[in-house]
């Protein structure tokens, strides 16, 4: 999470993105989050992580990566496999067999958990990212949203939680390794 972030640039260039050049095009500056707001979001993120325990995924075989988030936002889960191929809402299946179960959007009823599975995972490094493309409650940027991520991989569990701004992609929230023949 990058509080007080420096907006990047939106250009006709690969990966040159959102930002400063557009700043003068309209809108008002908003104050950064207060300590109370930040603490509230962190508590929400922790609660989402705790809720995973209440609804465990079937992770007995392969890899299951789950992203939990609230009704106020549409977040997207990205998992990049050892072939550097990524499964996400627009790439439903990767070359190593990773599959996204469903794209959880604003109109998706709860529990709001997006899930990507690798039934027969390849050994190597996996990267998990979280994007925040849109709000569901009409709030304006930065409108940070809380999330939690859990990974079940061949009997092991990895978890993390955090906060992500609107229109910001946390490319790496978690990385883990699957060894040949196991986790």
């Amino acid at each position: 999470m990058r509080w007080g972030w420096v907006p990047a640039i939106r250009l006709v260039l690969p990966f040159a993105l959102t930002g400063s050049l557009a700043l003068a095009m309209g809108g008002c500056a908003k104050p950064a989050l207060s300590d109370v707001q930040l603490a509230t979001l962190k508590a929400q993120a922790q609660a989402l992580a705790d809720n995973f325990e209440a609804s465990p995924a079937d992770g007995s075989t392969g890899i299951v990566v789950r992203l939990a988030f609230g009704e106020e936002a549409d977040l997207d889960l990205y998992v990049t496999d050892p072939l550097l191929d990524t499964v996400y809402f627009a790439r439903h299946e990767s070359g190593t067999g990773g599959i996204i179960e469903a794209d959880v959007r604003c109109d998706t009823p709860g529990p709001r958990i997006e899930e990507i599975r690798f039934p027969d995972p390849w050994p190597g490094r996996y990267r998990v990212g979280v994007d925040h493309p849109q709000r569901c409650d009409g709030e304006q940027s930065p409108a940070p949203a809380a999330y939690a991520v859990t990974v079940h991989a061949n009997g092991e569990t990895y978890t993390t939680n955090g906060i992500v701004d609107l229109e910001y992609f946390e490319v790496v929230v978690l990385e883990f390794e699957i060894e040949k023949g196991g986790s």
Binding site: W5, V6, C28, A29, S141, P142
Partner: peptide, 12 residues
Amino acid sequence: LSQYIDLSGALG
């Protein structure tokens, strides 16, 4: 300024 104030709401 963006070091001190969140300006991202101003994005076009």
